[in-house]
Design a protein around this nucleic acid. Sequence first.
DNA 1: GGGGTGTTAGTAAGTACTTACTTTTGGAAT
DNA 2: ATTCCAAAAGTAAGTACTTACTAACACCCC
Lengths: 263, 263
Amino acid sequence: MSRQAETGRGAAPPNAAGGARMTGDDRRRQIVRVAMQLFAERGFRGATTKEIAQAAGVSEAIIFRHFATKDDLYTAIIDDKSCEGLGGGLGRAEGGHEGHTAVDAVRHWVGEAMERGEDAAVFEGIALKMMEHHQRDPQFLRLLLYSALEGHQLAQIFWDRNVRVMYEFLGSYIRRRQREGALRGDFDPLVAVRAFTGAVIHHSLNNTLWDKDPARRILNVSNEEAARAFTEILLRGITDGPAAAQGGAKPRPAPGVQRGKKK
Amino acid sequence: MSRQAETGRGAAPPNAAGGARMTGDDRRRQIVRVAMQLFAERGFRGATTKEIAQAAGVSEAIIFRHFATKDDLYTAIIDDKSCEGLGGGLGRAEGGHEGHTAVDAVRHWVGEAMERGEDAAVFEGIALKMMEHHQRDPQFLRLLLYSALEGHQLAQIFWDRNVRVMYEFLGSYIRRRQREGALRGDFDPLVAVRAFTGAVIHHSLNNTLWDKDPARRILNVSNEEAARAFTEILLRGITDGPAAAQGGAKPRPAPGVQRGKKK
DNA sequence: GGGGTGTTAGTAAGTACTTACTTTTGGAAT
DNA sequence: ATTCCAAAAGTAAGTACTTACTAACACCCC
């Protein structure tokens, strides 16, 4: 809880953990990092500049030397984060953000499986990477949610740069597999993408937002198990199980149906 | 935008739309309603008592006559709303909240289909009712999200009273259908519930939070189409498609990810 | 000594909440 | 019916504190 007390008085040790003198760029980055954390915890309105300053171990005025307004600080976060997507661990670092989007990350992790048409590996890999990212950096989900609720740009930018292209990317993969006859052709690929990502993201959201305590969880499964289960449901759901045509789900089943088939 | 100006001065028309004199109970209810809307729009911290008063057409002091603190106002909302669940349209009204939970609503809408084992009707009905509720009352989703992010009770109460029991309810239905041989027996029913509700809720969340403009939507389908598609994927995914054993999804084709246990 | 990092001590506009007061109302007692 | 009055519904103008943001000055290292 104790928030790295502000060194405050002039008599303070000049080299204390929080208040050491930094170069402008370092301080700026540190403020962005700290602010991001607080915005994620309390939202834009909820996180005060005073708290941010304290957490960074400097006086409030320093913040306004680096960022003209609180809003500027927020948009600085966007520049730092928005291109990251769910890559989270690839190019998150300092140097140059030359556009590492979520899709790039996905392509990197499951590109080969995609080329080979190994659907299970593709979807399981994506689910796993997403969940791992959410678990490693739960702040990011909160930041994004707050941003969407509060109507900040971050949400929109993230949406356009990552979610949209992700849908197109996955959608076109599914479409290709439909053409190849590996998947059924009678459904909208984007609906499948939504169902799948919905399950994955909702699962992460549950675990990081509501059901934090693993002991009390409604559904306490490892990321691997969840990824495998979601993938299996999806793939069975969209492949052309020969039986599907007659029995399963599409035509409204008559009263007793579906229990008939004996393997 | 214009917020029904507060009548203000004593000279104001006593019967004006916003500022008419009300009985205590009526005013109290009105304040709760207005506050709920504003909390949903801006969050607890973001909605000021002044704004709430203005929107209600009274002076700020009136609010504190009815509610000792702003927090009290929030918990009053909980008493009003929390039992409603996704029923939204069943027992939302005044009189007595004798416990209309989400599960009661579900039982009402798809209970017969459940008894008859019409899985498609069950899941499609649930999905549709949920999405319709979200669409009719998008504020509720926002309220809930803000509540979870800001750490208010509402989220926890809603979770315990509605989400938890919903998982148990749907989970036990699936378990029954597994015993009856209608659904495969080799998956955790709760995982299926999560995948399904995840798809549905994520879909609503997308439409009410990020992708508001229908014209620009990534995925612009009617609630009916979405419900049908999600249901089809799920049911094909968890029924025993005879083909599944040999073909597509189950045996791990990939070298990549963990292939350890085989049941 | 000058540019950059830091500070303290402000300010004006909110913020939740209070105080002291006025108006309206419903229902007896007259 | 009128009068009277207490309770209820309302108000303006505070209070004490926080908020984002600023101004003026101190330290430090090339």
